[in-house]
Amino acid sequence: MLDRKNKPLLIFGLVVMFIILVPLVLVVITSFGNQPTISLPIKGFTFEWYKNILQQPDFVDGFKMSLFVALIASFSALLIGIPAVYALTRYNLQHAEWFQSFFLSPTLIPEIVVGFALYQTAVISFKLPLLISLLVGHFLLCLPYVIRLVSASMLILDPHIEEAAWVSGCTKGQAFFLVVLPNIKASVIAAFMMCFINSFNNIPISLFLNGPALNMLPTAILNYLQNNYDPTVSAISVVLMIFTAVMMWVVEKFLGVNKLVK
């Protein structure tokens, strides 16, 4: 039987878990070495590289910019996605499934192509500012998460509770905020986190849509890594891992991390 007591399965499981975790552990270790290039085993112990992060304007500005873009993109995806989900799940529309697929369609386009095509349309044809184009690109990245996660929970929610609220004297708007939203809160938070994390980590879309004054953290790390091989990259990686861990902890606190993948 392939259950928990199966020895080969246990060994296999542990080995693969090891493979999954070791690379990240190595990154953490290398961030403390005091040689000028990354090497293992490390010699000495230093926090120099962490201090060096702050000397890199690309990293500092990139962090701020990525944070800003991820927040705006995630919020606008919620703001635009939730009404669409509401219409799809509560209005008995004839082509609801078609609309659903339409809203999920950005996931079918390779991210690099989204960035590439958007650059030509938004920046060159529409003459939109680079920042706006970048936000649009990240919005397209986020929207499908909102559509998928929020519509799943809207479908579970009893539509009669809204009607009960209307009969009790609520307008449609009041009923949405007082009765629907509190009950889909978990999926909204989950969608927000998925949007935020994916936008914050994204490279391919930003690749075509960044510029000298518009520097995103992941692309900054990518560029740095292509030109340097010192433990500053390890240090910034560790900082970002802590950032991820904190976010996961927050999600766990509010609704359980497992909600993110459902």
């Binding site: 009669h160 509770i161 009607e163 009960a164 609220a165 009969v167 009765v179």
Partner: peptide
Amino acid sequence: MVFQSYALFPH
């Protein structure tokens, strides 16, 4: 109104 599913507000 009383609904078949009761439709109580879960929150």
